[in-house]
């Protein structure tokens, strides 16, 4: 039963979802709408579940004094502070009106933006060490990268007015063609994986 019930659910729901794409009439459309609402409800509950799990995992780290357990204290404290602050005027418009908005714009915002900005440092270092024109293909990639980097900044236009145009051409044709090919491959893979799951061939999600 533990195997058959989930397989039956995914078979029925999978086939039903495919059928609704071709029959948008009542009562199938209404039933599909009900299922979609259920899905949103379940997804919303995951936020709560995720928070509980985060506290549980980090609480366990603090309890067992696992490596870097001190950071778990910071995480749980920050979570608790933002949660409490959010309940009190969390929907205010400015950081002068609420503690939540103050913390968001003066702590969370700079921290997250800084983490993302670190990419620039690592990209530069990695490019210097690894971006080598070892063969013709790598040379092509390197030249395209240089042109795009110059075409994407005003200094590139100051060097040669044609850089933005060449950049747009690379983006619109070779780049779009490659991305489209990759996308089609991914989507064909997704369709085949979905069929495998609906037909009960792929069962790794149950483990």
């Amino acid at each position: 039963m533990r195997l058959q019930v989930p397989l039956a659910i995914i078979l029925i729901m999978g086939l039903f979802t495919i059928v609704t794409s071709f029959i948008p009439a009542r009562p199938i459309a209404d039933l599909n709408q009900t299922f979609r609402n259920w899905y949103i409800g379940i997804i919303t509950f995951f936020i709560f579940l995720g928070t509980i799990n985060l506290v549980r995992v980090n609480g366990e780290k603090i309890k067992t004094k696992a490596s870097d357990w001190q950071y778990s204290i910071i995480l749980i404290t920050a979570l608790a502070v933002m949660l409490i602050a959010g309940f009190y005027k969390g929907r205010a418009s400015t950081d002068e009106e609420s503690v939540f908005m103050y913390l968001y714009f003066n702590v969370q915002f700079p921290l997250e933006a800084t983490m993302y900005s670190l990419l620039a440092f690592f990209v530069t270092s990695a490019s210097f060490r690894a971006f080598r024109a070892r063969n013709k293909e790598a040379l092509c990639l390197l030249l395209a990268a240089v042109v795009i980097m110059l075409g994407r900044v005003p200094v590139g236009t100051a060097i040669w007015k044609g850089f933005p145009e060449v950049t747009e051409w690379i983006m619109s044709y070779p780049n779009a063609a490659a991305k489209r090919g990759i996308r089609l491959g991914i989507d064909l893979g997704l369709i085949s994986m979905a069929l495998r799951m609906i037909l009960g061939i792929e069962r790794s999600y149950m483990q």
Partner: peptide, 9 residues
């Protein structure tokens, strides 16, 4: 910074 990255590459 783009010029710098190109320079390093």
């Amino acid at each position: 910074s783009h010029l710098l990255i190109i320079g390093f590459v």
